[in-house]
Amino acid sequence: MPHEQWEIWLDTQISPIIAKWMNEYTGYVVKSSYSLNLHFLKDSEIYYRAKAAGNVILVSKDADFPILITRLGAPPKLINIKIGNCDNRTLWAFLKPNILSAIDICVLSDVEIVELE
């Protein structure tokens, strides 16, 4: 499935600037929860909206999304970030070396959750 058919949605705790940088770096459509107007919703509501949208990869630090996807299935798929609170540059430095391979795993395989630690 070509990558143009997939969108990446960043969870609320990840700054919209990361969406911009990730879009420029990966070539994927990357949207922040703010641009999607999801920042005020519960995780379960975000999950169901992403499921309805189809080929969505959520990027989140939130422990609730792995539980939801394990229990209810994909889509959406998840890149689960295991890093504490940090500034945007530190987060991007953490993500950048591994984000393309994490996305490829989500897009090209049956793996539902990829953890970045």
Rank of each mutant, 00 (worst) to 15 (best):
S15P: 03
D110R: 15
S35Q: 13
D62V: 08
D104G: 01
V107A: 12
A74L: 07
I18N: 03
D64Q: 14
E4A: 14
S101A: 15
P75V: 09
A63S: 15
N23A: 15
T26G: 06
W21S: 05
R71T: 15
S44L: 11
R89T: 03
G84H: 02
K82M: 09
D87T: 02
P16A: 03
S32R: 02
R71H: 13
E24G: 04
N80I: 06
L108D: 12
E115I: 10
I99L: 14
C106D: 01
L108P: 05
G27P: 00
L78Q: 01
P97G: 01
C86Y: 00
G27W: 07
S101H: 15
E45S: 12
E117A: 14
G84A: 01
I79A: 08
G84Q: 08
T26D: 10
Q13K: 03
R49E: 14
Y25Q: 07
W6G: 09
K31G: 03
Y28F: 15
V107K: 06
K96F: 00
T90R: 10
K20A: 06
P16E: 04
Q13V: 04
T70S: 14
L68T: 07
Q5L: 10
S35K: 14
T90W: 07
L100E: 06
P76G: 11
D11T: 06
K96W: 04
E24F: 04
A53H: 12
W92K: 01
